[in-house]
């Protein structure tokens, strides 16, 4: 009887592959152990956390609806901060995007400047920008508007720069062949190609900004956050719930609006 010798061990990966997998998993586990141990967690706090939470919920209910009219103004202010900040950011984002795109920048130095602006703007959170601008302009919505604009410039410019780098080169070549100047090539052949990205990104960022500006008040940069922070510090939990519900409604509505507008852009 000539029965073939089939292997009775089967493994999905080669030993080398498995070694690499285990190295990844091991380093992830080490990182986790190091992080958790070094945070010096007081486990005692966890013991009564559920009681604390239940207590909080009890104090929140019922919401103090009489507070709602007082919240409307700061709520509108929050949307204004997001909208005005986004508007300002478009004005700066377009030229910066052209600087930061490889195919439209003037030379290596301008490209680096453009990229540096992108990195700086994007890596600092809106709330931290708020901290900076409150130091400059003092507390109030102006600082909030500047913070939103400072963060959004990098966000919009990065996506628009990527769109510029991906435009159809043939259209540029055709306009170049007519003897048009460089800026005319940009405005005639490139701008129409990036309009959808520019508008879509801006509206998407506006919707993120509404959410971000709901907390700008924590650092004194205007909007509803100021009222939320004050109510929490005074332990007025039923008032806090009203504010949270108001923020919830505004953020959901702005998200729906943004999704609707973006779906209509072709």
């Amino acid at each position: 009887m000539s029965k073939k010798n089939y292997p009775d061990i089967w493994q999905r990966y080669t030993p080398r592959e498995r070694l690499i997998h285990w190295l990844w998993i091991g380093s992830a586990a080490l990182a986790a152990a190091w992080s958790v141990s070094a945070l010096e967690i007081e486990w005692a706090f966890f013991a009564d956390a559920h009681l604390q939470a239940a207590d909080l919920v009890q104090r929140m209910w019922p919401p103090r609806w009489s507070y709602l009219p007082l919240v409307l103004r700061p709520l509108v202010e929050t949307i204004h901060i997001a909208t005005l900040g986004t508007m300002i950011s478009i004005i700066f984002a377009v030229p910066i995007a052209f600087l930061a795109a490889r195919n439209t920048t003037l030379n290596g130095a301008t490209w680096l400047v453009g990229r540096a602006i992108l990195v700086l703007s994007r890596s600092i959170n809106t709330v931290i920008w708020g901290l900076v601008f409150v130091a400059i302009f003092g507390p109030g919505p102006v600082a909030g508007i500047c913070a939103v604009a400072a963060r959004s410039v990098g966000f919009i410019a990065k996506l628009v720069a990527e769109a510029i780098e991906e435009v159809d080169h043939g259209q540029i070549e055709a306009i170049e062949a007519t003897g048009a100047g460089t800026l005319q090539i940009y405005s005639t052949a490139i701008l129409p190609q990036i309009y959808p990205v520019l508008i879509g990104t801006t509206i998407y960022r506006w919707d993120i900004n509404v959410r971000e500006s709901s907390v700008l008040g924590f650092v004194g940069a205007g909007g509803i956050g100021l009222y939320l922070y004050a109510s929490i510090n005074q332990f007025l939990w039923s008032q806090v719930l009203v504010i949270l519900l108001a923020i919830f409604v505004v953020v959901i509505l702005s998200e729906a609006f943004s999704a609707y507008v973006r779906s209509r852009i072709t």
């Binding site: 706090f45 956390a49 604390q52 909080l56 959410r211 924590f218 929490i232 923020i247 919830f248 959901i252």
Partner: peptide, 14 residues
């Protein structure tokens, strides 16, 4: 819907 900072403030309270 809620920003990380709002969630953080609750966990700080707890």
């Amino acid at each position: 819907t809620f920003h990380e900072v709002i969630i953080a403030i609750f966990f700080v309270k707890l």
